[in-house]
């Protein structure tokens, strides 16, 4: 089963950066940004990602075909230009170019919304625990520990088989299980922020704790959260493809890269193009996300290089 969290080294880098950030202040961000843009692989990856992103959004309009229309005369046809089936068609005669790009929309969406879900839950949970401190904190951390040793993948499979497979449930599920590390990082950050003057001031003014968390703490941990979220995206996309393999992905006629790749893998000896195009997009995207992630890590933790 695919692990849906970034690898340990990236997590460590983010946490460490958060610590340094606290000591040295704002200029670290600027340094990190400079370092990131000096990393050629990361920058190229970012450009490719942007290109794929745009293609996925506008691409479907370039083709004369609908993503769910059947071309009866062109069932499982190889790529050709005459009928504008640039990537060929699937076994039902639907245009693969359009479907690949539509699938890309879903995959990107699952990745991004899944990460967002994780971020929202993780940030609020971590900030609350960190800010409350004391018993509440240790109780919340215990809960986190318990959750951490849960076989979540299995719960996700259970949920997906039993309660239908709406796309919302997918990213809720994926996001819902990957916020744990996020919560830890945010908690650490919050604890150090808590002692700062502006928080003290807010408290003295009688601001409610919930307001302090939302207005003062969350905006201050946001940077680190965004970086971490970017690392979550590729693992989410990969996990969605795993769900698709189990037949628990998005609803037809919608599709995702995972679903397309899985269909392609079933017929790779008969219709190579049905596997090749979606796999190419999936792999390139994940490659790029990973290089960007590596770039971010290196930028945040310069000692490595």
């Amino acid at each position: 089963m695919t692990a849906i969290s970034p690898s340990a080294d990236k997590k460590a880098a983010v946490a460490k950066f958060a610590k340094d950030l606290e000591i040295e202040g704002r200029s670290l961000w600027a340094d990190a940004r400079d370092r990131f843009f000096r990393n050629r692989a990361a920058v190229i990856s970012l450009i490719i990602l942007a290109f794929i992103g745009i293609l996925v959004v506008v691409g479907p309009w370039l083709s004369p075909h609908e993503f769910d229309a059947i071309d009866w005369g062109y069932m499982a046809a190889p790529p050709e230009t005459e009928m504008s089936h640039w990537f060929g068609t699937d076994s039902l005669g639907r245009d693969l170019f359009v479907r690949t790009l539509m699938g890309g929309r879903i995959s990107f969406m699952v990745g991004i919304l899944g990460a967002l879900t994780a971020v929202v839950i993780g940030t609020l949970y971590g900030a609350t625990a960190g800010y409350a401190g004391g018993r509440v904190d240790s109780a919340m951390m215990r809960v986190l520990e318990i959750l951490q040793s849960f076989p979540f993948m299995f719960l996700v499979i259970l949920l997906m088989t039993m309660f239908g497979r709406s796309i919302y449930l997918i990213f809720l599920c994926i996001g819902g299980v990957s916020w744990l590390d996020m919560a830890r990082i945010v908690r650490g950050q919050t604890i150090s922020l808590k002692g700062r003057e502006f928080i003290e001031a807010a408290r003295v003014c009688g601001t409610k704790p919930s307001a302090i968390i939302v207005r003062h703490i969350v905006p201050n941990v946001l940077g680190i959260v965004v970086v971490y979220a970017s690392l979550l995206v590729p693992s989410m996309i990969l996990f969605e493809s795993f769900l698709s393999f189990l037949g628990l992905g998005v609803q037809e006629p919608m599709t995702s890269w995972g679903a397309l790749v899985n269909e392609g893998a079933q017929s790779m000896e008969v219709a190579t193009w049905q596997l090749a195009f979606p796999v190419f997009f999936l792999v390139v995207t994940l490659f790029c996300f990973n290089y960007v992630g590596d770039g971010l890590r290196d930028a945040l933790d310069p000692k490595d290089r």
């Binding site: 990969l238 393999f245 893998a265 796999v279």
Partner: peptide, 18 residues
Amino acid sequence: AMTGVVLPSFVIAPLLVM
């Protein structure tokens, strides 16, 4: 290594079989 990370196992496994 990166390829290994990003290629889903349900592609690798049937490829190996083939």
